[in-house]
Design a binder for these strands. Structure first.
Length: 196
DNA sequence: AGCACGATGCTCT
DNA sequence: GAGCATCGTGCTT
């Protein structure tokens, strides 16, 4: 029986880069009527405030990014490239727009549901859009609270990843962003026991 | 293993 | 109208 205790809001109410690094190794869990879908978080990215020119909040508050300005521990979901949904967890105090993009998880429960939703048996959740599809999440869950007792989607404690095992790289897919934001190493990942 | 490209529609200027 | 926090396919090394 797996742990279903959500990480507390205080976990997310901290500097975004720290939250991002510490999300590695934790488990993303969705509770459905048909069962549990879950995986270990293996890749994330930090997007930090209006000064970060890769962050959706760079031009201030809009209808799309409003959730990022809200309290930490909520889900920020947006649509891109005409077909893909991205999942982010809001960080830092209310009023400061920042979030961590979930880019990959290592599936460890509910593989059958992920395979059905992905329409294939491999590459289930390695990539932000694949992850969202594997968990069956779209725009309708934008703004959801991941820290409430009754949340059917949350982050629960997994294993702690040693700092020496964490790889830092520039963020992916932000090609026209000016420096230094283009090159700052705010993509964090690690290799779980097995390889992809 | 790596690159090029098309799909497809929302958001903001 | 431009630009996208991407993915899958197909083709080349």
């Amino acid at each position: 029986m797996s742990n279903l205790e959500p990480l507390p809001r205080s976990f997310f109410d901290r500097p975004t880069v720290r939250v991002a690094r510490q999300l590695l190794g934790q488990r993303l869990v969705r509770i459905e009527e048909g069962g549990i879908t879950a995986g270990i978080i293996t890749e994330v990215e930090a997007y930090v405030g209006e000064t970060d020119l890769a962050c959706h909040a760079r031009a201030g508050r809009t209808r799309r990014n409003a959730v990022m300005y809200g309290p930490p521990g909520h889900l920020y979901v947006y649509f891109t490239y005409g077909m893909h949904w991205m999942l982010n967890v809001v960080t830092e105090h209310e009023g400061f727009p920042a979030a961590v993009l979930l880019r990959a998880v290592w599936p460890d429960e509910g593989l059958d549901r992920m395979q059905a939703r992905r329409g294939r048996a491999d590459h289930l959740a390695d990539g932000p859009a694949r992850l969202a599809q594997a968990f069956g999440l779209k725009g309708q869950v934008n703004g959801m609270d991941l820290c409430s007792r009754s949340a059917n989607l949350c982050v629960v404690a997994g294993e702690r990843i040693q700092a020496s095992k964490i790889l830092s790289r520039p963020r992916i897919g932000i090609g026209r962003t000016p420096e230094p934001w283009l090159s700052v190493a705010w993509n964090f990942s690690y290799l779980p026991k097995q390889s992809r």
